[in-house]
Amino acid sequence: MSALPKPSIDDYSIPSKHYSSRRTRYRKNSLSSKARQSQSKDGSFPQSSDRALQRSSPQTFQFPQVQPLPAKLKVLLLVQKSSLGLALILIASSIAVYVSTVRIPELWSKKYQDLETLQRQERQLVAANESLKHKLAQQAQEKDSNLALITSNNTIFIPQAPPSQPKQTNLEEDLRETSLKNMPMGY
């Protein structure tokens, strides 16, 4: 921050004045009528009705007095605008109703059926797997199965190894060894 040159107050003050003056003018325009906003922005006024006024009083600039829109038109405009909003709300709500009454139950029930199928399959798999294990065990028990039983005679018991002692190492010796190893043989 400190490296940047501090902006002088004047740099800002001049355009701000400019803006404020323009804004006031704009506000005056807008007071006349909402319908004429777009026209008053670029400063050009309708010629036909206002020319007489300009001529009669060239000294003072007078804004054209626009007649307010008829009430019916206003109502119609309001209806148009609100119906658009209403339509949007209706579309949204109908989608919401569809989703909540048709789509969600559909998805939910599909997923639940999947879950049930999976659970059923799991149980079937468990039953099949265990039956197979039982069959194998039965076959192994038959005398001519040629399978040897595990007994203490044919089992190797490996005694538990004593806990290994951590090797005592000398850091200096280790370092010396490695440094000798890395030394080129010719020197």
Binding site: L149, I150, T151, S152, T155, F157, P159
Partner: peptide, 11 residues
Amino acid sequence: ESLIAIEGIPP
């Protein structure tokens, strides 16, 4: 005998 095999009990 079976217990020895199943549990792996050493002699």
